[in-house]
Design a protein around this nucleic acid. Structure first.
Lengths: 184, 184
DNA sequence: AGAAGGACCAGTGGTCCGTA
DNA sequence: AGAAGGACCAGTGGTCCGTA
C-alpha cells in the first residue's frame, strides 16, 4: 500500500538560503529552520502554563516533554535530533543576525551544502564567546530565545579548547602565536 | 565476621533537638542534619569548579553526580534519600530560623519523634509561600542556600492545594471560610 | 553522498520498601 | 514502631546509525 504516495514521508532537506529567500522545489530554507526554533519555544510556553496551572514542576528548557507535546499537537515535523543538530546555527542567528545573514549569503554563493554551512556556523559563535570571557552558558542564558536551548556539547568543547589555546599563546614564553587562529 | 562490630552500620537516627543542643547517646541532632545540607552545598561547589575547569556542563543543584562525588570523598553518611526526605525542614530553617527554632523547641517539649517534627515543618513553609504569591519555586530560587535543592514534590502539591482552597474561599459566593485553615 | 529522525543507551530524579 | 538508605524505575539528555 505504498502506491498512494500521499503522505510526505520525511521533511524536505534544508538548503542554504539567504534571509528572506524562499526555497524552491522539494527543499526547506533556513528561515523555516529558525522558525521551528520559535515554534518549539511556543510549545514550551504552553507546557509551562499547563504545569503552573497544575502546580507541577515547570520546565525551563525545551525538554523531551516539550517535544512530546509538540508531536501530540500535530507538529510531526519537529523532532529532537533535528532541533539539537542546528542549535549553534540558531545561536548565531540570535546573537548576530547580520553576521548570520552574511554567512548564509557567502555559503550560498559558494554552492555549499547544508552540512558545510552548519560547520561554518561554529567559528563565529566561538568568536562571540571569546569576546565575552568564553562563558557560552552565560551567553545562552542571557538571551531570551536562546536560553530555552541546551548548549550543544560540541560548541561547549570548542569554546573550552579555544580558551585554553588563547591562554597558552598569550602566557607561554615566546608563544608561537599560531594558536590565535581557530583550528577548524 | 560481624563480631568485630567496629564499623558503624548506619547513621544514628535523628532526634528533635533545640538549636545549639547536642544530641546524647546514639542519636544525631537537628543542627547536625542542617549541617549536612551545607556540606552537600560545599560538594556541589567543588563539582562546579571541576566542571568549569574542564569546560563541561555545570550542575546548578545537588544532583546524583554530587552525591556520588560526596561518597567518593569519604562522606558515606550523606545519601540522596535522606537529604531529600528533610528538604522542607531545611527550607524552614533557611527561610525563618526563628520560627524553625521555636518549632523545634515546641516539638521537643511535646516529646514528639522525628517523623512528627518533620510533618510539622510543612505548614509554616506553606504559610510563607502563601505570603509570597504561592510561588514555592521562586522562594527556593531566591535563597542562596535553598536554591541548590529541588523543591520536594509533596511541598509543591501542598502549596498548590492550599492556593486553590484560598481562591475558593475568597471568591466563592458566601464562602464558608473554613478553607482558611490548612487541612493537615 | 548527503541528510532526516526512529530508537537506543547511560546516567537522572524520585522514592519505595526490604533492612536493622 | 520508627527510621536510615540500597536499589529500583520511569522517563531524560544525548546522539548514533539504519533509512530513504
Amino acid at each position: 500500500m505504498r502506491g498512494g504516495g500521499r503522505e510526505r514521508q520525511r521533511e524536505h532537506p534544508f538548503i542554504v538560503t539567504e534571509a528572506g529567500e524562499v526555497a524552491r522545489g522539494k527543499k526547506n530554507g533556513l528561515d523555516y529552520l529558525f522558525h521551528l526554533y520559535e515554534q518549539c519555544h511556543d510549545f514550551l510556553t504552553q507546557v509551562q502554563n499547563i504545569a503552573k496551572e497544575r502546580g507541577e514542576k515547570c520546565p525551563t528548557k525545551v525538554t523531551n516533554q516539550v517535544f512530546r507535546f509538540a508531536k501530540k499537537a500535530g507538529a510531526n515535523y519537529i523532532n529532537k535530533p533535528k532541533m539539537r543538530h542546528y542549535v549553534h546555527c540558531y545561536a548565531l542567528h540570535c546573537l548576530d543576525e547580520e553576521a548570520s545573514n552574511a554567512l548564509r549569503r557567502e555559503c550560498k554563493l559558494r554552492g555549499e551544502n547544508i552540512g558545510a554551512w552548519r560547520q561554518a556556523c561554529y567559528r563565529p559563535v566561538v568568536e562571540i564567546a571569546a569576546g565575552q570571557g568564553w562563558d557560552i552558558d552565560a551567553i545562552f542564558s542571557a538571551h531570551a530565545q536562546l536560553s530555552v536551548w541546551y548548549v550543544p556539547t560540541k560548541l561547549r568543547q570548542l569554546c573550552h579548547t579555544e580558551r585554553n589555546n588563547a591562554t597558552v599563546s598569550s602566557s607561554a614564553s615566546g608563544g608561537s602565536g599560531t594558536a590565535d587562529h581557530l583550528p577548524y
